[in-house]
Amino acid sequence: MTASIPGASIRNMGKSTFQPNTEPKAFFEIRVGVYCTEAQAQRLVDEIRLLLCPDSEHNDPCPIPWTTAHWGLDRPEAAANYPALVEQVRIEQGGDQI
Results as ranks from 00 to 15, higher is better:
residue 76 P to H: 10
residue 74 D to M: 09
residue 73 L to E: 02
residue 77 E to L: 03
residue 70 H to R: 14
residue 38 E to D: 13
residue 31 R to G: 15
residue 78 A to K: 02
residue 63 P to H: 06
residue 86 V to E: 00
residue 73 L to S: 02
residue 50 L to M: 13
residue 40 Q to P: 01
residue 86 V to S: 01
residue 50 L to S: 10
residue 20 P to E: 04
residue 59 N to C: 07
residue 23 E to H: 07
residue 58 H to D: 02
residue 44 L to E: 02
residue 39 A to P: 01
residue 19 Q to I: 14
residue 40 Q to R: 13
residue 17 T to S: 15
residue 49 R to D: 13
residue 55 D to N: 15
residue 36 C to I: 10
residue 36 C to A: 15
residue 71 W to S: 00
residue 27 F to K: 08
residue 69 A to Y: 07
residue 83 P to F: 01
residue 31 R to N: 13
residue 66 W to P: 00
residue 65 P to W: 03
residue 25 K to G: 08
residue 56 S to H: 10
residue 61 P to W: 07
residue 49 R to P: 01
residue 25 K to R: 09
residue 52 L to D: 01
residue 31 R to L: 09
residue 56 S to N: 04
residue 80 A to F: 12
residue 87 E to Q: 15
residue 38 E to F: 13
residue 23 E to I: 14
residue 33 G to D: 00
residue 73 L to Q: 03
residue 56 S to C: 08
residue 45 V to R: 11
residue 71 W to F: 15
residue 85 L to F: 04
residue 39 A to T: 14
residue 49 R to F: 09
residue 50 L to K: 14
residue 64 I to L: 15
residue 30 I to G: 10
residue 44 L to H: 03
residue 91 I to N: 12
residue 38 E to I: 05
residue 26 A to K: 02
residue 21 N to K: 08
residue 73 L to H: 02
residue 61 P to D: 02
residue 88 Q to V: 05
residue 83 P to L: 03
residue 85 L to N: 01
residue 87 E to T: 12
residue 91 I to W: 08
residue 44 L to M: 14
residue 86 V to R: 00
residue 32 V to F: 08
residue 52 L to K: 03
residue 43 R to W: 04
residue 32 V to H: 10
residue 28 F to Y: 15
residue 17 T to Q: 14
residue 79 A to R: 13
residue 36 C to M: 13
residue 18 F to G: 09
residue 70 H to C: 12
residue 42 Q to E: 11
residue 61 P to M: 06
residue 86 V to K: 00
residue 62 C to D: 15
residue 69 A to M: 09
residue 37 T to Y: 04
residue 61 P to K: 07
residue 39 A to M: 10
residue 75 R to N: 14
residue 43 R to K: 15
residue 28 F to K: 05
residue 69 A to E: 14
residue 52 L to W: 05
residue 36 C to P: 05
residue 24 P to C: 02
residue 62 C to N: 11
residue 41 A to P: 00
residue 76 P to N: 09
residue 40 Q to H: 13
residue 20 P to H: 07
residue 56 S to F: 08
residue 34 V to L: 13
residue 77 E to P: 03
residue 37 T to I: 02
residue 90 R to A: 04
residue 63 P to T: 02
residue 68 T to S: 12
residue 74 D to R: 14
residue 54 P to Q: 03
residue 26 A to Q: 11
residue 78 A to M: 04
residue 42 Q to T: 10
residue 66 W to C: 06
residue 19 Q to E: 11
residue 68 T to Y: 15
residue 74 D to Y: 06
residue 25 K to Q: 11
residue 18 F to Q: 13
residue 21 N to L: 06
residue 36 C to L: 07
residue 73 L to I: 08
residue 62 C to I: 04
residue 27 F to Q: 11
residue 16 S to W: 07
residue 21 N to W: 06
residue 91 I to D: 06
residue 33 G to K: 00
residue 51 L to D: 09
residue 61 P to A: 08
residue 66 W to D: 01
residue 58 H to S: 07
residue 89 V to C: 02
residue 26 A to I: 04
residue 76 P to R: 10
residue 72 G to V: 00
residue 60 D to A: 10
residue 37 T to K: 05
residue 74 D to A: 13
residue 46 D to F: 02
residue 50 L to D: 13
residue 66 W to K: 06
residue 76 P to V: 07
residue 77 E to F: 03
residue 49 R to K: 12
residue 21 N to H: 11
residue 36 C to K: 05
residue 65 P to G: 03
residue 72 G to T: 12
residue 48 I to E: 02
residue 24 P to Q: 11
residue 22 T to R: 07
residue 66 W to T: 03
residue 40 Q to V: 10
residue 73 L to C: 05
residue 21 N to T: 14
